[in-house]
Amino acid sequence: MDLTDRSILLTGAGSGIGRALALELAQHPTRLALVGRRSEPLEEVAALVRRQGAEAVVISADLTADGAPAQVVAAAQEQLGGVDVLINNAGNVRAGRLEAIEESEVLAQIALNLTAPILLTRAALPALRASGEGLVVNVSSGLGLLGMAFYATYGATKAGIAHFGEALRRELHGEGVHVLNVFPGATDTPMMDSSGARAEHGFDYESPEAVAAATVAGMIGGELTVLRGESTGQMLARNREDPAGVDRILAAGKAELEKVVTGHSSL
């Protein structure tokens, strides 16, 4: 895909991977609809995008509100003149033992990480088809491929959006809309500020800029998946061959992991 002058709807654009994606995409240049709950960080990103010669509009919205996904897509179409690319990047996390997490916290993760992107994609499909070369990018997680203790709900939502993307790619094959799934590893973003997990716990951080660059390269190259994190790839291979062995490896550090991630929340 040639991204020049493409109209792109990007969620979770105010910080982290979303912010880095906006700045990476601005280099082509593109027309960006930046979506998030708070307008101030979105306006800051929009100003940076415009300085690079790209266009940017800001759409402040809670994607989990009733009707919000369709409203956001309609606003993006009106302000950009269409939607060629949808990037489902917005997400949240609440780690800890399942029984210690409030029901509202479980539902909040499902609503933003899974339900909202599905409904956004559904609403955007007519515009994506009309573009003639539409693209959906789902930002999942390495934890959507490898189940990790204390991230059961988060991992389920990220596995769900990845499976949704794979199924939709096959559903739309040959119809002018492609789907790319992205699996970041641990990334140094504000979403991770409340986590104490570090390299000794199996979390090897990389920059959001590196994830954004790999994602945009995957978009241009027509890739099916982008997987980040060398350790993630190694553990995934081991998990396929000996899942019980991975259980034993992770069990050795389970008590310490619980201590450092129990307070991890971006809700």
Rank of each mutant, 00 (worst) to 15 (best):
L86K: 03
L107Y: 10
A123K: 08
L128G: 05
S104R: 15
P117E: 01
Q109W: 11
T115C: 06
L128D: 00
P126H: 12
I101M: 15
L120Q: 11
L107D: 13
S131Q: 13
V93H: 06
A124W: 01
T121F: 02
L114C: 03
G132D: 09
R129M: 05
L135M: 13
V106G: 05
R122P: 01
E133F: 05
N92P: 05
L86W: 08
A124I: 12
L125M: 08
I118N: 00
V93K: 07
R97T: 09
G96W: 11
I101L: 14
E133N: 13
V85F: 02
G134Q: 15
A111I: 05
R122T: 11
S131W: 05
A111Q: 09
G134C: 08
G134R: 01
T121Q: 03
T115M: 10
A90I: 10
N113C: 00
P126R: 03
L114T: 11
A123V: 00
I118R: 01
S104I: 09
T115P: 03
I101W: 07
V106T: 11
T115H: 04
V106K: 12
A127H: 01
N92R: 14
L125A: 06
A100L: 11
L86F: 13
N89P: 08
G132R: 02
L107T: 13
G96P: 14
A130Y: 08
L112F: 00
L128T: 02
A95Q: 05
R129W: 15
A90P: 06
L114Y: 14
L128I: 04
A108D: 15
L112H: 06
L125S: 04
L135K: 08
A127V: 06
I110T: 05
I87C: 05
A124Q: 09
L128E: 02
L119K: 10
A95H: 14
N113I: 03
P126L: 12
A108M: 07
R129I: 10
A111M: 05
L107N: 10
L98I: 15
A90T: 02
G91A: 02
P117S: 12
A127R: 05
E103D: 05
A108C: 10
E105N: 12
P126D: 11
L125W: 12
N89Y: 11
L125G: 04
I110N: 06
L120N: 11
N113Y: 04
L98A: 12
L128H: 06
A130Q: 14
R129Y: 14
L128M: 03
G96H: 10
A95T: 09
Q109K: 12
L119V: 00
P117H: 01
L114F: 13
R94T: 15
A130R: 13
V85L: 01
E99C: 11
A130V: 06
R129N: 12
R94G: 11
S104F: 04
I87T: 07
I118T: 04
A95V: 07
